[in-house]
Computed example of a mutant assay.
Amino acid sequence: MPVWICATCVNHYPESDTPPASCVICDDERQWVPSTGQRWTTLAELGAAGHTLEVREIEPGLVGLGVEPGLGINQRGLLVRTPKGNLLWDPPGFLDEAAVRAVRELGGLHAVSSSHPHMYGAAVEWSRAFDVPVLLAEDDLSWVTRPDPAIRPWSGSLSVLPGVTLVQCGGHFPGSSVLHWADGADGAGALLTGDTIYVTPGQDRVTFLWSAPNMLPLPERLVRQVVSAVRPYEFDRVYGGWWTSVLDRDAKRVVERCADRYVQFLRGDAPER
């Protein structure tokens, strides 16, 4: 029986003869169902259609994994490499034997994790390929669409590997999280944020959203909560959920400044220009 994959968000659902009636992720107001209706696919169908996983070094110790041609939300996963093991962050929804071989050649996996439910992707498939745990925020476990014994809940913060820490921020989802990589950005520190902290197209600002596709803002209380959660960590760079979502320098200051500006608009205090 196939694993069913929502073609819109690319979350995986349990093996079954027939697909689910709907995708609980896309039915939520933070996502969307196409006007043509719910559609399902499988790994075999995606492979036959020519989808592959592109593996690309981003900086020393950090490798990007993206599906080509693009698929669903089309997040680019990130493999954080350390001498004690590798962590796969925000895994995309497709993998095949070639992708598994490529990651094995890079040192394999110690664990898999995700920023929030939209980006759980093929986490369980990666877990099974390497026999490693899937680390998911406890507050978001109700959104897991493919339950598995490998899923391990955590909350607050969790040191996964030396210099690699999961940090719960809330906001987009109660369990929305970032990954702090102390050795990133040449030792200045980097945050891997998915869209918990959303890097804007100019790659010089960030924003905070309840829903990106439906253009729903995040309340001030939650914006402050996100910024407060990352404040104890040093970081000069932010890697968002896509290839071009990178804030390359001075990131901690930019996050604070953009949060203040965002709140100005929420309050109606932003000056007219």
Rank of each mutant, 00 (worst) to 15 (best):
S211P: 10
P174S: 02
R257V: 10
Q38M: 03
V230Q: 04
E97C: 08
A111K: 07
W40T: 05
G77R: 01
G184H: 12
A182I: 03
E59K: 00
V103F: 08
E105I: 08
D186M: 14
E138L: 10
V160C: 01
L166Q: 05
L46V: 05
G156N: 11
A190L: 06
L158M: 10
W143C: 04
R128I: 15
W242L: 15
G189L: 08
T36M: 13
L222I: 07
L158E: 08
Q264C: 09
G66I: 07
H172E: 09
A122V: 05
T18S: 14
W126I: 05
H51N: 06
R205G: 05
G156W: 09
S22F: 11
S176W: 09
W32G: 03
A123Y: 01
V238T: 06
L209A: 13
V10F: 15
A150Q: 01
H116E: 12
G175H: 05
V263N: 06
G50P: 02
V164E: 01
S177P: 02
R257C: 11
M215L: 15
Q264I: 00
V100A: 02
P92S: 04
D90G: 10
P34W: 07
Y13F: 15
G47M: 14
H12P: 06
V246S: 13
R253W: 14
G70T: 14
V100K: 05
V144W: 08
P217K: 02
S16M: 03
V103Q: 12
D90L: 03
I58D: 13
D195G: 01
G268F: 09
H110M: 08
V124S: 00
V246Y: 04
T52G: 04
H110R: 08
W126A: 07
A229I: 01
A98N: 04
A48C: 03
L106W: 00
G66S: 15
P20L: 05
K252N: 03
R146I: 04
R152V: 14
R237V: 11
V124Q: 01
W143K: 12
G121K: 13
H12Y: 04
E59C: 07
G170R: 03
E138G: 13
Q31Y: 08
A270F: 10
T196Y: 08
K84G: 05
R253N: 07
G64Y: 13
